[in-house]
Simulated scan of single mutants.
Amino acid sequence: MNRNVYLLALCQALLTTGNILLVAVNALVGKSLTDTPALITLPVAVQFIGLMMTTIPASLIMARIGRKRGFMLGNVVGIVGAVLAVAALYTQQFALYCLSTFLIGIGIGFGTLYRFAVMEVCDEAMRNKAVSMVMGSGILAAFLGPGLAIVSRRWWPGEGFEGAFVGLMLLYVLALVLLSLVSVPEGQTGATSSGRTTAQLLRQPRYLAAVLSGMISYGVMVLVMTATPLAMQVCDFSFDQSAQVIQWHILAMFAPSFFTGRLMDRYGVLPMMMYGALFLLAAVCLNLQGQAIVHFTAALVLLGIGWNLMFIGATRYLTECYRPEEKARAQACNEFLVFSVVAVASLASGWLQNTLGWYGVNVWMIPFLIVGLLILSLIQWSTQRQATAEVAE
């Protein structure tokens, strides 16, 4: 591994720390600023809408100005969003808070490309390990995020969450400092007029399977994760308890990353993605068994492991489905579709939790996971059949 991989991994850790902090406070802030149950998770949804709307422009901007400048631009926008969030909470303005989370989402949208950038600064043989290291940096975030969410409440008078966004701003400033030390290939990163169109890429079964796997894994994880603090509040658990459950979830999301790359090398990417879908299915089924602290904790651990296997597998599989000249187009399309689903899932989580309850939230996830398993099984069968035919020839 080279120096740039480690620096990008640290930047990813800071981004993830901020994301965890947002998971811990966003829905609760929304609840404190609006009396309309359906709008409680609107700030979360707006954040992911900002992320979704940024995915295509971010890839194209980086294709012109380079990864490094693009990441720095994203962090600057995130800092502005964090400042506006403090102002919104101080003045108790729900609309301003939604604007702030929208800008934070834009900043995160640039940061989602860290996992692709790290594969561009290392040898091809090291790519599985490199992307696993970047995702594994979330272990650091798993300790820092919930802790920062709890400790930062003491940074501001009263019982509000202004201090959390002061902490978020500091994370983005530190990321800017680290990025100044990174050497990432600048200029063109694959945005050319040659290669297949987006529609042609989506008609390719393998590319479509990678995209759909990313959509299902991230959508299910975000919906259940976002609804968890609300469900725990209904059950009279404290904020500290819900933050600790989220901490276990984040650990489970990123701890397996140190082994995921090796598992994919040994057993194949598609089988590991299918195992991920099974873990996600086990998580929602466990949530249906009860609402004790052990149910919330164990289910979110399974949810995190499932996301790790399925989403990292989808990321790695995606890179095998396009040509170098199609990179920016293929990555932008994937990020847009994945985070479109995430935006819908984050908004739906509050509505589902308030209308159907915790049971309904989890039941709705089962059909999507079964569809994901069927798609991956079909692609695996097709791949094995093709390999058998080539050997026979």
Rank of each mutant, 00 (worst) to 15 (best):
R3M: 08
N4A: 08
N4L: 05
L7A: 11
A13N: 09
L22V: 13
A27F: 12
A38I: 14
V44C: 00
V46E: 14
I49Y: 12
G50L: 03
T54D: 03
T55V: 11
M62K: 01
G66W: 12
L73M: 14
G74F: 07
V80S: 09
L89M: 13
L96H: 08
G105Y: 02
G109K: 04
T112G: 04
C122L: 05
N128H: 13
K129E: 04
A130W: 02
M133G: 01
S137M: 15
A142Q: 08
L144T: 04
G147P: 00
S152K: 06
R154G: 03
R154P: 00
V166S: 03
G167E: 09
L168S: 04
T189R: 09
G190H: 09
Q200S: 13
Q200F: 00
R203E: 07
P205N: 08
R206A: 12
Y207G: 04
L208R: 14
S213P: 01
C235G: 03
Q244A: 14
A252V: 09
S257P: 06
P271H: 08
P271R: 06
M273I: 07
G276Q: 05
L280P: 08
A282H: 06
V284F: 11
A298I: 06
W307G: 06
A314E: 15
T315G: 07
L318H: 11
C321T: 15
K327L: 00
L337V: 08
F339H: 12
Q353V: 08
V361Y: 03
V363K: 12
I370H: 05
L373S: 04
I375A: 05
L376H: 03
L378E: 13
W381I: 00
V391E: 09
V391F: 12
